[in-house]
Every structure is written in structure tokens, then in C-alpha cells.
């Protein structure tokens, strides 16, 4: 549905048009609230690349690329996964639990924690797929409702049974340093989470471009009837894609817990809005993995620039959310503006 029959060139033109239109509309919003749009955009641009900006952009790109690819692999196969929040929470919690309570030595514990997150997030999304396949409840709705349930459930768990009473916050104990993912490898500005995400991204890109499975998923997204007639088992494939999409979301949760936050704090995983930003990046890229990665890095830079702009001008950084949403809306509305045929 989303992967329209656009060739690369006109797709690129469409995206550029959307960005320009969104910047103009966003400038209008800024102007109406009495600020100077030009200085706002200048601050965002500077903040994204200058000083610590580039490092921050890179760090923010890791979870964002992950969530965007989770959305993209589902979209590619014709599934809209709105439940990334829930899958990330369940995955993050599973990782925290394993890292905190499974008595195996350090590195093994980290590996086990990542594996647990992948399974937990995947199964959580798979459950929603089963509801669609067996009862006809749309995956889009079921996955989203599951998010709200995961939010309440994890919030309860870290406030009561799993809470670290030493801190004033609703959060678990800290993960032992042995089970954490190193923030720097060989003193390079490269974290373990970055490496894991890079490997995942490469696998997804290669699978999409050359893998037999990626080919089947893409063809299913383009025409499910044709795929079925060509011998694809649609039910099994839907379950598999949903599982992998959720597994990736779960992995992102684990990378954030083990590589950055070191404990599961209520609300901390969802606050930056990786799921929705990622979904928008995937839609913008029309679910092509490489374009999705580019779009998510762009969005990460935009957000980092937004924070810098907030510090400099005192305007809410959430303006960058407005821009992201406007880009998507302009892209979706484009066929109406340039009525083809």
C-alpha cells in the first residue's frame, strides 16, 4: 500500500518537496507564536552538527534506526505495526530482568539478556498477528492496544515488585557493570549498541536487496494475492514478519537498558518517542531499508538540533516533532497537489 509504484527519482523529488513544504509550514507555526523562524531553523541546523551535536545525533540514531527498521520490515510486507512502544517495553523489561536476576557470568548474562529481549518483543508482536489471522482483529489496532497494556504492566512492575527502594524513582536496581554493554570499544567513540545495530541494519538491508525472504516479503507488500498464487504461505509469513518486527523493537529496548540507562525506569524508554519517529521515517522512506536508515538519521539530527534550539531560544524542542509530522502529511497529500494524469 505505501510502497507506491514510484521510481526512485520521482520518489526523491516527492520527499524533497515534502521537506520544503514542511519547513515552510513549520516556519508559519513558529512565526505565529512570535518567534523568528529563520533563527529557529539556524539553531536547529547548528545544534545537529556542531560541537557535541554530531556525537549526540549518532547516539540518538541507534535506537531510532532500530525502531524505524522495525516499522519498515513490517510495512514492506504490508503490515502496519503501531505497537513498537509495547514491544520495546516488554523487550527492555525482559533484558533488565535477565541482567539483574539470572546468575551467569557477565558477558553471557548480557548476551542472554539481549536474546530474552528479542524473544519477548517478538512474541508480543506475534500475539497481535495471531489475533489478526485467527479473529480478524486488525494488526494495527491490536498491536497498539497491546502497547497500552504493556505500559501499565511494566509501570506497575517497576513501581512495586521490582523496585529499587534506594532511589526515589520508580525503577529497578542497576544492572551489574559486567552485564552492561560497553559505551566505548577500544576507546573509540563507538558503543557496543552501535555495533549491534549496524549488524542488524546490514542484515536487513542485505535481506531486502538479495535475500529470498526479503524478496517474498516485498512482493507480498506489493500484491498479496500474487504472492499467495506464487506459493507464499501468507499466514506463516505474517507471523514471522510480525515476530521479527517486534523482536527488533525489543532489541532496541534492551540496547537502551544495557547500554545507556542501566536500569528500567518507568517512562524512560518511551519519552523520546522513538517508535513514532521511527514509524514516520519508515513511511517517509516508503519502507526501503536504506532510505529508512537515512531518514532516521535525518530525524535524529533534527531532534538533537531541536534540543539545542530549545537551550538557545527557549522554544520547545518538540517543534521538531511538528516538522516530522508535517513532512509525512505533505508526502501523503502530494498526489492531491500534483494531480497526476
Amino acid at each position: 500500500m505505501i510502497a507506491a509504484a514510484l521510481d526512485t527519482k520521482s520518489r526523491l523529488a516527492a520527499i524533497l518537496f515534502s521537506i520544503v513544504a514542511a519547513v515552510l509550514l513549520g516556519g508559519l507555526v513558529v512565526g505565529l507564536t512570535g518567534a523568528n523562524p529563520i533563527s529557529v531553523y539556524l539553531e536547529i541546523a547548528k545544534g545537529a552538527v556542531l560541537g557535541r551535536g554530531l556525537d549526540e545525533t549518532l547516539a540518538r540514531s541507534v535506537p531510532l534506526v532500530g525502531m524505524a527498521l522495525a516499522a519498515a520490515i513490517a510495512l514492506r510486507a504490508g503490515l502496519v505495526n503501531l505497537g513498537g512502544d509495547g514491544q520495546m517495553l516488554i523487550g527492555g523489561l525482559a533484558a533488565a530482568l535477565v541482567a539483574l536476576y539470572v546468575p551467569v557470568p557477565g558477558v553471557a548474562r548480557a548476551v542472554l539478556a539481549l536474546a530474552a529481549a528479542i524473544c519477548a518483543g517478538g512474541l508480543y508482536a506475534w500475539l497481535a498477528a495471531i489475533l489478526q489471522l485467527s479473529l480478524g482483529i486488525p494488526f494495527l489496532i491490536a498491536s497498539l492496544l497491546f502497547s497500552y497494556i504493556a505500559r501499565g504492566l511494566t509501570s506497575y512492575l517497576v513501581r512495586y515488585p521490582l523496585r529499587d527502594p534506594a532511589t526515589g524513582m520508580p525503577e529497578t536496581y542497576r544492572v551489574a557493570s559486567g552485564a552492561r554493554l560497553p559505551a566505548h570499544i577500544f576507546d573509540l567513540p563507538v558503543s557496543m549498541a552501535m555495533i549491534v545495530m549496524a549488524v542488524v541494519a546490514i542484515v536487513i538491508v542485505v535481506n531486502d536487496r538479495s535475500g529470498v525472504n526479503g524478496f517474498e516479503w516485498r512482493m507480498t507488500g506489493l500484491n498479496a494475492r500474487f504472492a499467495q498464487y506464487s506459493g507464499v504461505n501468507l499466514s506463516r509469513q505474517t507471523q514471522r514478519v510480525a515476530f521479527l518486527s517486534g523482536a527488533l523493537a525489543g532489541l532496541v529496548g534492551a540496547l537502551l537498558i544495557l547500554g545507556q540507562q542501566y536500569r528500567f525506569t518507568d517512562g524512560a524508554l518511551l519519552a523520546p518517542g522513538y517508535t513514532w519517529s521511527g514509524l514516520m521515517a519508515a513511511v517517509l522512506a516508503m519502507a526501503s531499508p536504506i532510505a529508512t536508515i537515512v531518514a532516521s538519521v535525518f530525524f535524529a539530527a533534527l531532534q538533537v538540533g531541536g534540543f539545542s534550539m530549545e537551550r538557545a531560544l527557549g522554544l520547545p524542542a518538540v517543534l521538531t516533532w511538528v516538522l516530522q509530522a508535517l513532512i509525512i502529511l505533505c508526502l501523503a497529500a502530494r498526489p492531491i497537489l500534483f494531480r497526476k494524469r
Binding site: 507506491a4 509504484a5 500484491n223 500474487f226
Partner: peptide, 8 residues
């Protein structure tokens, strides 16, 4: 509808 994926 069935014989091809026209966009591929």
C-alpha cells in the same frame, strides 16, 4: 490482480 505485482 493475481498474475503480477504491477509495481515490481
Amino acid at each position: 490482480l493475481t498474475g503480477t505485482a504491477p509495481a515490481a
